[in-house]
């Protein structure tokens, strides 16, 4: 799925990475716990989170995650946007709660490989 399709499905606002809308994402994970993202995410993909602090961007950097979607209307700080920009990442935000945002993407075919 292309990042622009994610954007449309989640009715999301792009904070940074507008030039990367044609990038493909193959999987996604939803978590507010960066410890779990670091321990359990096997594939590079997209991260949905309601947590807003610079360590979310750092965690994504280490995991080779290029796209972060903030749910529940959370807004990333200027500092986070700058960190993400430097690393060539996409930051988006949606008003949808986590469950709905994950469900929309899953139903549209963004399903982790077995």
């Amino acid at each position: 799925m292309k990042v622009k399709e994610v954007k449309a499905l989640l009715d999301a606002v792009v904070e940074t990475g507008e030039a990367l809308m044609d990038m493909e994402v193959k999987t996604a994970c939803g978590s507010d716990m960066m410890s779990d993202v670091l321990a359990f995410v096997k594939e590079e993909g997209l991260l949905l989170t309601g947590l807003v602090n610079p360590q979310v961007v750092r965690t994504a950097e280490m995991m080779d995650i290029k796209v972060i979607v903030f749910v529940r209307g959370k807004v990333p700080s200027a500092e986070m946007i700058e960190l993400a920009e430097e690393r060539g990442m996409v930051l988006m935000r949606t008003q949808m709660p986590m469950y709905v945002a994950c469900g929309e993407l899953y139903a549209a075919g963004l399903v982790p490989r077995k």
Binding site: M33, S35, D36, V37, A39, T49, N53, Q55
Partner: peptide, 15 residues
């Protein structure tokens, strides 16, 4: 609050 403290750090480092 920053999203850490799940007790996964050291085991994850080992993994």
């Amino acid at each position: 609050d920053l999203g850490f403290g799940a007790g996964m750090g050291l085991p994850n480092m080992k993994n």
